[in-house]
């Protein structure tokens, strides 16, 4: 059986464990032997994005050590994947040894939906979910990794599911890591713009590939008194 390692990300590990489990379930269902290296923690993005590069480097080195021998690394996040695939190079520009480790890991790291479509080459994972959903394009997945049609193709194969596009699908939800608490009012305003767009679709559920965006969207939907839920793509695909 082909083997994949999962990097579930710190936020999924701590706050959305079911998303990680759903991803494992889908990967196993399509025939992969899944490994979870238990030494894994975070990719270092929070420190990097806040300007603490030395601290980010420490955590990034830890990541590179943990996943050094993994054949495929599958990640339920466009943002963390983009951090590792693009920003590590920046972090280690002056450290040849770690730069080499980064270059070695970069072709092996895959965001979940991209892995399904481009490595496993599977569109239909046998999922069923009878809901009307709308899809949020998370910024780092969309602009950093070019993820746009992929998740929609996967959703189109989910039995019973109807996708209704929102007009502001590509607009940022306003999370932005520490931005969400450094500029709460701007961040909240952006979330509300997003939510208005979601509400206009009449969908019952917002689907995305990053739980950080979903944390923001869910929190703002709940604050607005809406009953619309959020689900990670992996959870949708695991559903039967």
């Amino acid at each position: 059986m082909p083997r994949v390692s999962v990097f579930v990300t710190c936020i999924v590990d701590q706050m959305f464990p079911k998303v990680g489990m759903a991803m494992v379930e889908v990967l196993e269902r399509i025939g992969y032997d899944v490994d979870f290296p238990e030494e894994q923690t975070c990719c270092g993005q929070p420190a990097f994005n806040t300007g603490y590069r030395e601290e980010a480097r420490k955590v990034a080195r830890h990541f590179l050590k943990v996943f050094r021998d993994a054949e495929y690394i599958v990640v339920p996040s466009g943002s963390c994947t983009s951090m590792i695939a693009h920003q590590y190079r920046e972090l280690f520009a002056k450290e040849p040894e770690w730069l080499e480790a980064t270059n070695a890991i970069e072709p092996r790291i895959w965001e979940f939906s991209k892995f399904l479509l481009e490595v496993a080459k599977v569109e239909d994972v046998g999922a069923r979910l009878e809901r009307v959903v709308t899809f949020h394009d998370s910024c780092h997945g969309l602009r950093g990794l070019g993820i746009k049609e992929g998740p929609r193709r996967l959703l189109s194969r989910v039995r019973g599911l109807t996708l209704r596009e929102m007009d502001a699908a590509e607009e940022c939800c306003g999370f932005g890591g520490t931005f969400s608490v450094k500029f709460p009012e701007i961040s909240g305003g952006m979330a509300r713009t997003k939510i208005d767009s979601i509400l206009r679709t009449g969908a019952e559920l917002v689907v995305g590939i990053d739980v950080s965006c979903l944390l923001q969207i869910r929190g703002a939907l709940s604050r607005a008194g809406s009953t619309i839920g959020t689900m990670h793509l992996a959870e949708v695909l695991a559903h039967r």
Partner: peptide, 17 residues
Amino acid sequence: AWFSQRDLAPMPARSFR
């Protein structure tokens, strides 16, 4: 700052690991 704008679901009882 977080709660000034949004809610937060409770942390799950168990982590992924």
